[in-house]
């Protein structure tokens, strides 16, 4: 696939309009249980608008008629160093949409001032049964989570601790990962639950992507592109052409080669849930010491119906839960 660089009617992207958020905006009311209104406005509407504007502007500047889906745009631009700004904005927009889509309001939260004592607080030991019983979601999904992580409590701890471990900008994802691909054949986990897709938790940082098949090869491609450019230059000035002796290491290749050979193309990873752990999400309402409190609230605000909708259809139908 290649980007069509022919001048066509430019398609532009817009910020997803979620009915629940639009209603909050209309009434300038808080996102109950998670954000004050002013924060929601800055986080979603203002930041979103800024990203959308920059993205559309860059598409026009680069004379690109983009595909209708943001995901396609991300796939097309990640390996094009000259279109890095488009990639960055497209990813930011996609992540923003994805995160806010899987949120719903929960019980009210009053945003108390959280001070430094929060660091010294002992963690609350949660009851395995209680967490399990309070987790009222679709049965298939729940069983799938338990078969992947052991228990709901283990899943919750891993999810929130992964998010808490992010110091800069980043997102913690719940992903569905196919088991029957090459890379998992040799993994010790592969035999536990047959060939069913497995749920995993991963972190991405800044504008990272969960899909390694997109991310891989970049250094190699950059190298090739550079060589191509240099070759073009050399062709123009043939008298300067020299044979460049390449260093040859018979045991270890270069990082670029390793990257190229380590293909992830067989994997198709499906994101189910995103938790944005970047400081901008909690600093305003929860303060410097409020990261953990924010994440605890996010847990209560996850819209599991949306997560269920995102699960691959085929697998959820075929899914059977063997627990021993």
């Amino acid at each position: 696939m290649s980007l069509r660089l022919i001048f066509k009617r430019y398609q532009s992207y817009s910020l997803s309009k979620f009915s629940n958020l639009e209603e909050l905006k209309l009434n300038t009311s808080d996102f109950k249980g998670l954000f004050k209104y002013s924060t929601l406005n800055e986080l979603y509407f203002q930041r979103g608008e800024k990203i959308v504007n920059e993205l559309n502007l860059q598409l026009i500047e680069n004379k690109i008629s983009p595909p209708s889906s943001l995901n396609e745009l991300i796939k097309l631009t990640i390996n094009k160093p000259e279109l890095i700004k488009i990639y960055n904005n497209a990813t930011s927009l996609q992540n923003l949409n994805f995160f806010f889509e899987n949120l719903k309001e929960s019980s009210d939260y009053s945003f108390p001032v959280i001070d430094s004592n929060e660091i010294l607080k002992s963690p609350i030991l949660e009851d395995l049964e209680e967490v399990n019983n309070n987790f009222n979601i679709d049965k298939d999904l729940k069983d799938w989570i338990i078969s992947s992580f052991g228990s709901i409590l283990q899943f919750k701890s891993l999810l929130l601790n992964s998010a808490h471990s992010i110091n800069g900008n980043g997102i913690t994802w719940l992903i569905s990962q196919p088991r029957n691909d090459e890379s998992l054949k040799f993994s010790s986990f592969s035999s536990n639950f047959g060939n069913k897709d497995k749920l995993s938790i991963v972190n991405t940082y800044n504008n990272g992507t969960i899909d390694d098949s997109l991310r891989s090869n970049q250094l190699y491609k950059n190298q090739k592109q550079k060589e191509l450019k240099e070759n073009l230059k050399l062709e123009k000035e043939p008298e300067q052409q020299e044979v460049v002796e390449e260093e040859f290491n018979p045991i270890l290749g270069t990082i670029e080669e390793a990257e190229f050979q380590n293909l992830f193309n067989e994997k198709s990873i499906i994101p189910l849930l995103a938790i944005d752990a970047s400081p901008r999400n909690y600093l305003k309402d929860y303060g410097v010491f409020g990261n953990q409190r924010y994440l605890d609230n996010v847990w209560k605000c996850i819209n599991w119906d949306i997560v269920k909708q995102r699960t691959p259809k085929k697998d959820s139908q075929n899914f059977s839960f063997d627990y021993e």
Partner: peptide, 29 residues
Amino acid sequence: NNDGTPYFYGKNQSLDLNGGISEQTYEKY
């Protein structure tokens, strides 16, 4: 990037290889 330090180039963390890699980043690399 993030908590990089200016005192030691091994921990400058000036490369962001998380998403797309720009030419500029590749040169720095």
